[in-house]
């Protein structure tokens, strides 16, 4: 195989992954609190060490930009505005999410939409049985109160620049990577009650990326075809055909 073909096939593999990421973003265009993933292509420019053509380094990065705020009127829907996450308590350790569609479970504790306990500053937040959802008021710093009684406060965390190291676990949540990073107290974060943060996937951008990826893919395929033809005619000459 020539270097050109090797380079092209490396690009094709990377482009295929990019395309899969776009498809995943598009599938999650309606997922509350979803953050789009972008693939960073960085062509290795290291000619001294070894010549490695093609796209070799492909990291998936999150685009943690703010999603649009959508009003729902449901007292247990919360949107986060700014940098940070809600914490969830699970048997496997803490998880972090920006999907604030919460409910009360049968014990009155606040849980997320798949039933994981939402962490408060001091353990799970239990709403007394005689307080209706419509009586709950949540201030912008995440303090939950009913009338004059404070019930609890959401544990809101921020990872600052380490945000991109979080590992997605599905179900709108992230876990900390094995490499140690520390959650900090969220400072630049506002909680909005009766709102949801919609997915930050922008259909137009994804479509443009999709066209871009397809064309690059086709171009790479073309170069393989061209290479093939060149080799073919070269062999033809050598064999005297």
């Amino acid at each position: 195989m020539s270097e050109l073909t090797t380079g092209a096939s490396a690009s094709i593999a990377a482009l295929t992954r990019e395309f899969e990421t776009i498809a995943h973003n598009l599938a999650n265009v309606s997922t509350v609190g979803y953050k789009r993933k972008s693939n960073a292509f960085s062509v290795s420019l290291d000619p001294q060490e070894s010549y490695s053509p093609g796209t070799t380094d492909l990291d998936s990065l999150y685009d943690f930009s703010q999603g649009p705020m959508v009003e729902t009127g449901r007292p247990l829907d919360f949107a986060l505005y700014g940098k940070g996450f809600f914490s969830l308590e699970t048997p496997e350790g803490p998880l972090y999410t920006r999907n604030g569609m919460f409910s009360r479970d049968q014990n009155g504790q606040i849980v997320d939409s798949v039933g994981r306990i939402v962490a408060g500053q001091s353990g799970p937040i239990a709403i007394p049985n005689n307080i209706a959802d419509s009586q709950l008021y949540v201030s912008s710093d995440g303090t939950i109160s009913a009338g004059n009684t404070v019930i609890g406060k959401f544990m809101l965390v921020d990872f600052a620049d380490d945000e991109s190291k979080l590992v997605p676990t599905g179900d709108s949540s992230y876990r900390m990577p094995d490499a140690s990073i520390e959650p900090l107290e969220a400072e630049r974060l506002v909680v909005k009650q009766k709102f949801q943060e919609a997915s930050n996937v922008k259909i137009i951008e994804e479509l443009v990326d999709m066209i871009f990826v397809t064309r690059l893919y086709q171009a790479n395929m073309k170069s393989i075809t061209a290479q093939q033809e060149a080799t073919g005619s070269l062999m033809g000459v050598a064999m005297g055909l």
Binding site: H24, A27, K37, L58, D59, S60, S113, S164, P177
Partner: peptide
């Protein structure tokens, strides 16, 4: 600084009565 993770789509987690 960041890994390579490819997602596999979406599922309906719940319907909530408002």
């Amino acid at each position: 600084p960041s890994g390579i993770e490819i997602g596999s789509g979406v599922r309906v987690a719940s319907t909530v009565k408002v």
